[in-house]
Design a protein around this nucleic acid. Structure first.
Lengths: 184, 184
DNA sequence: ACCTGAACACCGTTCAAGT
DNA sequence: ACCTGAACACCGTTCAAGT
């Protein structure tokens, strides 16, 4: 009566994540995942409810990693320096996981909301409060996140089509946005 | 020898756009488009090369409309007022076309780049140059677009999960971003 | 308890045959 | 010149049958 487990949810999620970044979301098939983890397609349904459930698990995995990367970056004690480091860590993470990153802020059909990492939100709000005071902390944090998310997403999508130094645009934007929210 | 045209590329694109907003990108099937325009599925391939080609045509259509909406909004002569009106028009358009809007800045498999409306880029760069001077016009324009795109995309995705007035966050962000790029 | 082959409904796409 | 039915390869998903 063997028939013991040939794979695991973690292995399936890891395979899905790799295939997602390699071939794009549309080309992520249950068959490819099954082949990668060494099992037949129907066996995947013992661990994941459906293909969209697999996406949800992948996004959770990615969100957890982003949380950890941002927590590790924000540790200098100086809120302005920490906000810069946070933005840099976020950008690095998005560059390393360009496709998974776009899924982070997309409405999840399953949950109704998005997978924006909760812990990241709390860290960011704390830093912005230290930098700009409590009065307008929430709108200020939303301004920083909107700029960073927009810049990084557009950069990865190749949406900055005019020539010009994109690093300079990043530094310019970060400087001016952080400066702006301090003057509340 | 009738067998004359029962549909048109424009009708197919319009039907595709409507179904896209109604049911989402994944649920947009060639069969549904064919049913909507009153033809059998294979006939679509007389006008459209493929499903991804249909997406490209839809995005072009949407981009053209956004161009027109933004050009119509930016006509006061005052660059600061025009930038505000542009941002407002962009946000209204995105709210009216939430799914199509997300496709605007996504890498198009076919073209390699994105469908960011060219004319909008030119209008925006002109306004920012008038407001902030030519020195840092490009990075300043990229800061404004990144913030607006990020804010609108996150808002539509439901990514602003904490309670708090989102209108206030929009006004706060627009005020501070525009103010920041003036101080160059 | 997990794995599998077979089957189902559904896709996008092609093509020969019709008018 | 456009339209169509039939067919193909490929999906996600289910399920009874194996061990």
């Amino acid at each position: 009566m063997p028939a013991h487990a040939q794979t695991s949810t973690a292995a399936i999620v890891a395979a899905g994540r790799r295939l997602l970044e390699e071939h794009g979301a549309d080309a992520l098939t249950m068959r490819d995942v099954a082949d990668t983890v060494g099992v037949r397609t129907p066996s995947l349904y013992k661990r994941v409810r459906s293909r969209s459930d697999l996406f949800r698990l992948i996004v959770e995995d990615v969100a957890g990693e982003l949380n950890a990367a941002i927590d590790a970056a924000a540790n200098s004690g100086d809120p302005a320096a920490d906000l810069r480091a946070t933005a840099r860590a976020y950008r690095s993470f998005a560059r390393a996981n360009p496709i998974a990153h776009t899924l982070l802020f997309v409405p999840q059909a399953a949950t109704g909301g998005t997978a924006l990492p909760e812990r990241t939100t709390a860290t960011l709000l704390r830093l912005v409060t230290e930098l700009a005071g409590p009065h307008n902390a929430l709108p200020a944090a939303r301004t920083v996140v909107a700029w960073a998310y927009g810049f990084i997403t557009m950069e990865l999508a190749g949406a900055f089509q005019l020539t010009g130094d994109i690093e300079q645009a990043w530094d310019f934007g970060l400087d001016h946005v952080l400066n702006a929210i301090q003057q509340t």
